[in-house]
Nucleic acid binder design. Structure first.
Lengths: 292, 292
DNA sequence: GAAATAGTGTCTTTTAGACATTATCCG
DNA sequence: CGGATAATGTCTAAAAGACACTATTTC
């Protein structure tokens, strides 16, 4: 056992400083809804490696000064321009997973702790210190997002590019040209896992409301599900189901000011309820597996 | 922005070595079934800090040499005596989450990547290099395991001790006396999250079979669910439901050699099917939330 | 008034769960 | 044979989903 690493490993078991260093970063998959479509926050790298490539916002954890959660919140705030007071409090932030293949960064061994954020429509992004640009990019232009049967089965620590390259079958509106290249590092994999997690999480938690403002209509809530799942849902059934789940939403008693631009009654307004888990859950339609 | 950290932070964005070092460890919550009860693998620490305390098996990631998955598998192998050939291939290992509060280790800032392992009944544990002892400890003796309504709501990066101290209400058989002290570091929190994850994961994945041998009976599979959930299940309904989920189990055509010691027919044998997700899922009974 | 949308009603199929029943095996 | 357990059958309630329908608003 003490062959390969020898005395060093034995000592290091007691003194962590005896080890070769490993850098720790946080990277954030920040999702929001803009114009009815799912967008992810990306930055263009301002320095090597992968200079000029798109990447997830993130940075190094300040040793001894902050927890991982705090580091993720800090990085997100730097890139979105939100401060703790305005807006950031309404953002949902949760840990996604960690990535630590020794060759994922050419400089040295870097372990990245990935986070997933759900945010309501935010102002235009601004570039942080180490980025040349920051932008909300439509997910449809990046990932093959018509792939909803991929539920949990993910490659573990392998680099699986998530971007479409010579996009011969651009599905959505290729609104932002020039973003067909793969993401830096293994960020394509991380983004794919974040999207999977988001799709799964809104099934059994009320976190879809984190994409909306304080008050919202059932139709707006449905549009969140439709954007994240990439599916249209039956309006009537969705409506009844949401109201039947205890604690999902609670009525404000008010309605929206005007009906739809093309007519229709004024929709009632709701706010998020106090449930942390949806019971029963809002399951995705027809994720047919193998048999049946 | 560049106030607090100043020039250092700016440089470090390009050169990670300019940062204070952070050590990276992996810790494993390894669960198995012994004598019908859920057990977790613990080691007694052979050196400071927390010398003499129980802790999760784990150790430092070898920089530049291994991925996080590989490090977790290595640490688990060292502590269980399993090699890749014998047994370890049948162990399910997945990432649980990362813990990085700067004060969680008194020596320095240590980020720990936690893993969760499901294993069939394994041989007695043996202590690794840096541990004084390794042992399979019944979970009932450690955690307040009659708390199954805690589903996802976990404190994020806070230290929430999981052990019962002056256990006035020891539920299960307090088989291993002397393990009432809290675990080292924040390992109590990690263990609690691992148990929660395990309880949730066997609902919608076939991973309960990872606790059993190659072939098993439906009753054995039910005993896994009962041990992990801490609930008795209706035998008849469970049986029919398991067989109704496509790809969960497949029949071997054979039966067990003898019936139960007190009579009864010979149970049929099954092996794990090819499904990676259970559809429909095996939901836990009555996880009543707030309302309803 | 025409069109569009919010919200509700109704029916069918599927699933969960309680409970009963049959079949098989041990002592 | 008696008791225990494996496996299946039956019934009820809940939930998912398809579809129809009413009500309200804008143009």
């Amino acid at each position: 056992m003490a062959d390969r690493q020898g005395e060093d490993a034995f000592l290091a078991a007691y003194d962590p400083r005896a080890f070769e260093p490993i850098a720790v970063t946080v990277d954030v998959v920040a999702l929001t809804l803009r114009q009815g479509g799912l967008h992810v926050l990306l930055v263009r790298r301002g320095g090597p490696p992968y200079e000029g490539a798109w990447a997830l916002p993130g940075g190094f954890v300040h040793a001894g000064h902050e927890s991982l959660d705090e580091a993720a919140a800090r990085e997100l705030a730097e890139e979105t321009g939100l401060d703790a007071a305005r807006g950031l409090g309404r953002v949902h932030l949760e840990q996604l997973g960690s990535y630590g293949r020794p060759d994922r960064d050419p400089r040295m061994h870097v372990v990245s702790v990935a986070y997933l954020a759900f945010a309501p429509d935010l102002p235009e992004a601004r570039a942080g210190s180490d980025a040349a640009a920051a932008e909300w990019v439509p997910v449809g232009a990046l990932a093959p997002q018509g792939n909803p049967d991929a539920v949990t089965a993910r490659p573990k620590e392998q680099d699986r590019p998530a971007g479409i390259h010579g996009g011969g079958s651009g599905r959505r509106s290729g609104q932002t040209p020039g973003i067909s290249a793969d993401l830096a590092f293994d960020h394509g994999t991380i983004l794919a896992e974040g999207l999977d997690r988001a799709r799964a999480k809104i099934e059994y938690t009320p976190l879809a409301t984190a994409f909306l403002g304080e008050e919202f209509t059932i139709t707006e809530l449905r549009s969140v599900y439709e954007a994240v799942w990439g599916r249209t849902l039956h309006a009537g059934n969705f409506h009844r189901k949401v109201l039947s789940v205890p604690g999902f939403v609670e009525s404000t008693g008010t309605t929206v000011g005007r009906g739809g631009s093309k007519g229709g009654p004024r929709a009632r307004l709701y706010r998020a309820g106090d449930a942390r888990l949806l019971h029963p859950a809002l399951l995705r339609p027809d994720r047919e597996d193998s048999v049946r």
